[in-house]
């Protein structure tokens, strides 16, 4: 009985310290040091919030740089991946269908140029990035749909490539939302 009482009080103290004081301390630091006071960095366009910098969104129309497929349709209230195994026949035919769709929307692109990231779904379903290669392949289509010069659109992609950390570690990528906002601005000029 004494043991139980001791454990109860010790538990309550630990809840106070680790479940209450510690998170509030971190929250307090975020108010000062976190981007947008710890509420998540938002992206604005035309005076309204169009999304969060880190959270990918669905771009399927031909006039935008398309984002990666998502197993949850970029639903940021219920995230996840496809969890399909690499040999699952349903998965393989799904990828095949994505390849066919990509080719149909991007005439002139050779199949061997299509990078794997643009036809596979990410882990969280909210990947904000595509590979530079996936962006370059869409330049021709976008230039045509929007009546822009191809080299102008390509220059836009060049500007938005986010290289490896310190140039040394990690991957190269392009933030699709930022790239598309820049594209909208370019088209308005």
């Amino acid at each position: 009985m004494k043991l139980l009482k001791q454990s109860l009080v010790l538990t309550l103290c630990c809840i106070a310290v680790f479940g209450f004081v510690y998170p509030l301390l971190i929250w307090g630091v975020a108010q000062v040091a976190g981007p947008n006071n710890g509420k998540g960095e938002v992206v604005e366009y035309n005076g309204r919030v169009v999304g969060f910098k880190l959270i990918g969104q669905s771009f399927t129309e031909d006039k935008y740089f398309n984002s990666r497929p998502s197993a949850v349709g970029y639903n940021a209230a219920s995230t996840g991946g496809s969890n399909k195994g690499p040999t699952n026949p349903d998965y393989l035919s799904e990828v095949q269908a994505r390849i066919d769709t990509f080719l149909a929307h991007n005439p002139g692109v050779a199949k061997s140029q299509i990078p794997v990231d643009i036809v596979t779904a990410s882990g969280g379903g909210l990947d904000p990035h595509i590979s530079p290669q996936a962006a370059y392949l869409q330049v021709k289509r976008i230039a045509k749909v929007r009546n822009l010069a191809e080299n102008e659109v390509k220059a836009l992609v060049d500007e938005h490539i986010d290289g490896p950390l310190l140039g040394l570690m990690g991957t190269s990528k392009v933030n699709v939302l930022k790239l598309n906002i820049a594209l909208e601005k370019l088209a308005k000029k």
């Binding site: 496809s82 061997s112 596979t120």
Partner: peptide, 17 residues
């Protein structure tokens, strides 16, 4: 299927990692 898989097995993975 004839696509470019140099980035590896990207199903379920994030481009930033």
């Amino acid at each position: 299927m004839g696509i470019d898989i140099t980035a590896g097995n990207m199903e379920g993975k994030e481009v930033r990692f």
